[in-house]
Design a protein around this nucleic acid. Structure first.
Length: 272
DNA sequence: ATCTATGCCTGGTGGC
DNA sequence: TGCCACCAGGCATAGA
């Protein structure tokens, strides 16, 4: 499940491989991914040159001059670059045929991902992007910012950290890791979290996301390998996916529970 | 306004 | 082996 570190890795790979290429054609094999006008998507993009690839939190921006594809990978979206004559694989839904003989292919087994075409100058005015909060390793993220966003809430801190309008880019894996690193139980309500603990969340978020980004992200469930977008941060995970294994700090058994409907891993001794 | 339930999806898994 | 109910979960949206 791509979170900010994985999306940044995809961005870096794509940036090296597709910037400067021109889109010759677009094929839809399943067009439900496209959430803006499907005809316009083709009409506007065919003939355009890819000018940049960027990301903001989990959103990927594929910039083509005055228009940009906003792409969200959700659970299992992936991009591949393959020779144009290579056979299509199952679940390769959107095919961008580039002028260098390669395709940019969007594959998504569960079809949860979305693409939207917007004017580049309007990216940060769109509803999807405008509402996003601050990235977890940004210098702009402060203990006071977090505290102000959560201290009146009676939702579990885990749900608040998954709220993209507060912190932009954390998903289920990194929230578990951040809360473990901060010694905070995910079930604690927002209104019980102290300013000091917000500082710990900020520090942990910065440290973990920086490291995970360096590692190229985390690969937990990989059906297929792709273009170097598989990371190695899974080697550094301390609690997520570690049910029944000893806590790396104290040896207590890691427990898997559910918080806000999501699988959640905790050490009951280290997290209070 | 805010909360809860549901839908989107497919493949893997465990029970029988 | 086959069948099937269930689970994984980010996010939008409908309904309460």
């Amino acid at each position: 499940m791509p979170e900010i570190a994985e999306v940044r890795t995809v961005k870096n790979v794509l940036k090296n491989r597709i910037v400067g290429k021109t889109i010759k054609d677009i094929k839809y094999r399943y067009d439900g991914i496209i959430k803006t006008d499907k005809n316009e998507f083709k009409d506007i993009l065919i003939g355009k040159t890819i000018t940049n690839v960027d990301n903001y939190g989990k959103w990927l921006f594929i910039e083509c001059g005055d228009y940009t594809i906003l792409s969200h990978l959700r659970m299992e979206g992936k991009y591949y670059i393959k020779p144009s004559d290579e056979e299509y694989e199952k679940h390769e839904h959107i095919i961008f045929k580039l002028d260098d003989g390669y395709d940019l292919r969007y594959k998504d087994v569960r079809k949860f991902g979305v693409m939207k075409l917007v004017k580049t100058e309007d990216i940060y005015k769109t509803d999807d992007i405008a509402k996003l909060g601050i990235e977890p390793d940004s210098k702009d993220l402060t203990d006071n910012y977090i505290y102000n966003k959560i201290h009146k809430s009676n939702k579990p801190i885990k749900e608040l950290l998954l709220d993209q309008s507060i912190i932009n880019g954390l998903g289920n894996i990194y929230v578990d890791e951040v809360l473990f690193e901060s010694n905070i139980l995910p079930t604690r309500l927002g209104n019980t979290i102290t300013l000091d603990e917000c500082e710990k969340i900020k520090e942990a978020g910065t440290k973990i996301i920086k490291k995970a980004t360096e590692c190229g992200g985390t690969t937990i469930r990989s059906y297929t390998s792709s273009l170097g977008v598989e990371g190695t941060y899974q080697e550094y995970l301390k609690v997520h996916t570690k049910a029944n294994q000893p806590c790396p700090n104290c040896g207590e058994k890691i427990v898997k529970t559910r918080v806000g409907g999501r699988g959640t891993y905790i050490c009951k001794r280290c997290q209070k």
